[in-house]
Design a protein around this nucleic acid. Structure first.
Lengths: 247, 247
DNA sequence: CACCCATCGCGAACACTGTTCTCTGTAGTG
DNA sequence: CACTACAGAGAACAGTGTTCGCGATGGGTG
């Protein structure tokens, strides 16, 4: 009929364009003023349109925030996946470190999104946006792959860790692994969990300004801890010293 | 001159009473509706007074929130200090575990305050409330005491950890220890930092609902990780005898 | 081509918020 | 007693999210 060359009917393309602009300016306001100060009227003002016009594209302020949150999750997941893909697949420690560093850099560069993402869930608590959940899974999956592949390479003695788990823990960790579609030892999942909590704990303290100022730029301390996370997992197999650094 | 029996001049006592009531009702609203929904008008309504009257007691909404935040910090610090004091001073692992559990219980019981406390610092960023900083120090100090006393008892070979630190890290960790008025090895501070980040990472993920639901009630997993934090610190001492600092 | 109607954008309006101002009664002071 | 400091009330201003009804525009169809 009309322009078959463009598969999307132009009308919809324009709509998508302004929706993108809305998101972009909202994102800017967010980064500059913080999540609490994001106002639809402010966005409308910056775009030179009436506040009410925004409602043709956005259901409500909260929905817009949720959308930006999901975008943030996606952006983080992309960064992690890119770091994972770019790393040497045979140097498991190095790859883990690369991914962890990518996570840190992203957190520092996107402090506000980090708040949105890892801050408290929506007060209503009701339905966690399904897209948010999916993107979170994607991020966590990358972190897990670093560990599971190291386990697969025989760097971690998961049996030793299993021994420290009660049957109840064992069962739930196994269930969790099932949720992720991976078939690894519960001990391996325990390692993943420890890695994730430590990574997130450090970054949340740092990005939210709770680390003591005496620790100036804690990049090296972060590296040190992430290496230790890995080394702790490998401890049963390599009793002394950090394993196979080979920068 | 007047009533010497009551050292505070009644007038001020009444003032303090209503101020307490304000804080109490604000705290309730906070717990029920979340930090974003706390409104001065709502507090005034619940107390049966005009919104403008609140300004006799509170400078602004933000200041009130900061006040509640500081109270939250203080409450957490109290809980940690109580747990520390109640524990067997010779069982260092047990005491650490008790303190960590007290931290967790507090976080779960006071999810909203936990947000206020460990969420992003005030957007303005300007002056971190000095009281907030002081109470935070008090909390962290308890966690540190668990570790430093274990180090003092010879359970941790800090020298071994020191060896893994670059001179720059070493210097900054030492400076941090100086800020806390404690004279312990930078390696010990590294242990404290790891313990803190791991504790906070786990709790922030759990209280904010980001842990996978498959892990149902992760109390035992939390214990497991906290024990591992301690064990990791002690690892170097297990195989060979007394600590041998190898700067 | 003309027509039509879905869509877009706008302005006004409502209910709500934080905050300031001015006013009044009253409790404590000399 | 008079007087002052102060708690509280009410109105008002600026700002917010959100809804509703109006006009205009322009792509799809007769």
């Amino acid at each position: 009929m009309t322009a078959v060359s463009s598969p999307v009917p132009r009308r919809e393309r324009l709509r998508q364009a302004t929706l993108d602009e809305i998101k972009r300016t909202a994102h800017t306001q967010l980064a500059e003023l913080g999540p609490a100060a994001l106002s639809l009227r402010g966005v409308a003002r910056a775009m030179g349109m009436a506040p009410s016009a925004l409602y043709r594209y956005v259901d409500s302020r909260e929905v817009l925030l949720a959308e930006l949150t999901a975008d943030g999750f996606a952006s983080l997941a992309d960064a992690l996946e890119a770091a994972f893909a770019a790393a040497d697949p045979h140097d498991h420690l190095g790859r883990w470190l690369d991914v962890a560093r990518a996570h840190r850099r992203w957190a520092l560069d996107h402090a506000v999104e980090y708040t949105l993402i890892f801050g408290p869930r929506v007060p209503d608590g009701g339905s966690v946006d399904s897209r948010v959940a999916a993107e979170l899974e994607r991020s966590v999956a990358v972190l897990f792959r670093c560990m599971t592949e190291a386990i697969g390479a025989g760097l971690v003695d998961t049996g030793h860790i299993d021994a420290g788990l009660t049957p109840a823990m064992y069962a739930r960790l196994r269930a969790w692994a099932g949720d992720h579609g991976v078939a690894i030892d519960p001990g391996g999942m325990a390692v993943c969990l420890a890695a994730w909590t430590q990574l997130h704990g450090f970054l949340s303290l740092e990005t939210f300004g709770h680390l003591p100022p005496a620790l100036d730029d804690p990049a090296d301390l972060f590296d040190r801890q992430m290496i230790d996370v890995f080394a702790q997992a490998c401890r049963a197999i390599a009793p002394t010293g950090p394993p196979a650094p080979t920068t």
